[in-house]
Nucleic acid binder design. Structure first.
Length: 584
DNA sequence: TTAGGGTTAG
């Protein structure tokens, strides 16, 4: 009685954890907090029988460990892992599968084999899922060769997988010794040495054999196939499908996910007809396609700008195979309309979707805003944004705000854009690189270089903020939040400054770029300089006073020319524009 | 409840 008032059953809170662990937007962090709160309360009871039903079990630990893995937080993983015995719990095979993911997230491919060895040494019954996790991890690293070797060995009924993985480590080490050293940061080393005591003996010991033979199943094949797909190896993807169909193990037969992966690979390569053939094949052999499959094909047609085919497929979905399109289908089509500059069509699909009772998501709203933003109708984008604010099911986010800014900037409406940015700040959203990038483009378009100076000041201030959590002051003040501008933003700002003959600022920006390892496009600036400013300061008729005022700017121009590598007064050489010189 | 498939937002 007392317990129920304070603490939920472990099954209940563990279920919440499992959802949070892989949820976006701070889900994993929330999972950690929840786990901490509950275990803290549980610990307060000296009589454990009082809270027996609420005490964490292995599944609960696995869920919170999964949150750590998703955050790539090895330290927290270790801390919780070491708390398990306190509750009389032992890590199980799932725990180690999650540890495989942790290694992957921490970029420690070299440790994967030692997790497998640890499981074997501890005598924890190995299951197929561990092999799934391992294969997925290697695919994630793009190391398809190792996966191929694993799969081949499994097909041959071999049990020396650890040996194969050790050899892969050795090859990596020989290939790229420096990276190997870079990867092993000190914190990581101590965490993993505790998680995997077998690391200490390391490679000196003979790699253990798997306790039994595992034949690859369709999941393993499909994971490898996904690796091929990600690397654009369409032929290998298709060949893999053929190989799967030809082998006799029924567990390795292609299923709807395998086929969908093949279709996805073909669609990515723009091969719509072959993709349709695979779809037909699925129907023929009775492996039904689902909404995912159709959505992939829809996207393919949209990317190929074949909206009519997309529309036809949408109809076919609903009428022939009885798969109702969902919000993703419609978002895809709305975006497809944007690709063919059809904002009216985008709106039509948006409305059709609502008519069908399919609720738009924030992505739907933002995509529709994009339709209007890109077609020069910022007012309509604004209207959609207002609708979005009114819809209680969705929450406008930074991306939506940015789209609003983009709409105005596309037309060079800098003042409007700045008002939106002010509003977004007041609503607790801090401009990011995208916001500033749009604004910079708007400023460039509007030819208001003075605005670029203000923007550069703001960007520079935030760039110079070091570390995290340096925020202080009101919510609308983002000046203390760190920001790392990207190449595009800086290049645009520099471009504006060069065109406006703000050479001192231009130099400042390019210097910042170089300091941060972003190579400025000197050729471009050279061209602009030659085209726009080569005759600068050449007027002989200006008054002495005017000429004096120019001196500063001239010095900046000379410095900029020096940086560009153009002949300048620093070398004492005369330089004049020769039309043939401009393409240097 | 870890591990294979899809969409969107500068």
């Amino acid at each position: 009685m007392l317990r129920s008032g304070y603490l939920p059953h472990v099954k209940a809170w563990s279920a919440v954890l499992s959802r949070l662990a892989s949820a976006p937007d701070g889900g994993p962090t929330l999972a950690l907090k929840l786990f901490d709160t509950i275990t803290r309360r549980v610990r307060r009871f000296s009589d454990v029988t009082m809270v027996a039903d609420s005490r964490p079990d292995t599944a609960a630990f696995n869920n919170v460990l999964n949150a750590c893995a998703n955050l790539g937080d090895g330290k927290m993983f270790l801390k919780l892992f070491e708390e398990m015995p306190e509750f009389g719990l032992e890590p199980d095979i799932l725990t180690y599968n999650i540890m495989i993911k942790l290694c992957a997230r921490c970029n420690r491919k070299d440790l994967l084999v030692f997790v497998l060895e640890r499981v074997i040494e501890k005598g924890i019954p190995l299951c197929m899922t561990t092999l799934h996790s391992l294969v997925a991890a290697y695919v994630g690293f793009g190391d398809l060769e190792t996966v191929e070797r694993m799969v081949q060995a499994m097909r041959e009924g071999r049990r020396d997988l650890c040996k194969i993985l050790r050899e892969a480590n050795l090859e990596d080490f020989n290939e790229d010794e420096e990276n190997e050293i870079l990867n092993s940061n000190q914190i990581g080393v101590s965490v993993f040495e505790k998680l995997l005591p077998n690391l200490v003996q390391g490679s000196n010991r003979e790699p253990p054999l798997l306790p039994k033979v595992f034949a690859p199943d369709s999941r393993i094949y499909t994971t490898l196939m996904k690796g091929y797909m990600k690397q654009g190896r369409v032929t290998d993807t298709v060949r893999m499908l053929e190989a799967m169909r030809c082998q006799d193990d029924s567990k390795g037969q292609p299923d709807h996910i395998t086929y969908t992966t093949v279709i996805s690979a073909l669609v990515k390569a723009g091969s719509m007809d072959p993709a349709r053939q695979v779809l037909a094949e699925m129907t023929r052999i009775g492996v039904p396609a689902n909404r995912f499959t159709y959505n992939i094909l829809l996207k393919g047609y949209c990317q190929q700008l074949q909206i009519d085919n997309a529309k036809e497929l949408l109809k076919e979905m609903a009428d022939d195979v009885n798969i109702e399109p969902d919000v993703v289908s419609y978002n895809t089509l709305i975006d497809g309309c944007i690709l063919v500059d059809d904002s009216a069509g985008a709106l039509a699909f948006f409305n059709e979707m609502r008519t069908k009772g399919i609720m738009p998501t924030k992505i739907s709203y933002t995509t529709l805003m994009k339709a209007f933003a890109l077609s020069g109708q910022p007012k309509l984008a604004n209207k959609v944004f207002d609708e979005m604010l009114k819809d209680p099911r969705v929450k406008a986010d930074l991306i939506a705000w940015n789209m609003l800014v983009e709409g105005y900037c596309r037309l060079g409406l800098v003042e409007e854009a700045k008002k939106v940015i002010q509003r977004m700040k007041e609503n607790g959203f801090h401009p990011d690189v995208a916001t500033y990038g749009s604004l910079a483009n708007g400023i460039s378009l509007a030819r208001k270089p003075g605005e670029a100076l203000l923007l550069w000041k703001e960007v520079k201030e935030r760039w110079e903020v070091k570390g995290e959590g340096g925020s202080s002051g009101s919510d609308s003040d983002s000046s203390s939040l760190p920001l790392k501008p990207d190449e595009e933003l800086l290049a645009t700002l520099a471009d504006i400054c060069v065109r406006a003959a703000f050479f001192q600022k231009a130099l400042e920006i390019v210097a910042c770029m170089e300091e941060n390892g972003i190579p400025p496009d000197k050729t471009k600036y050279k061209k602009i300089y030659v085209e726009m400013h080569s005759r600068m300061f050449s007027s002989k008729h200006a008054s002495q006073a005017r000429q004096d005022r120019r001196r500063e700017r001239k010095r900046a121009a000379e410095a900029f020319k020096f940086w560009l590598g153009l002949p300048n007064s620093y070398y004492g050489s005369e330089w004049r524009l020769d039309p043939g010189d401009s393409d240097c």
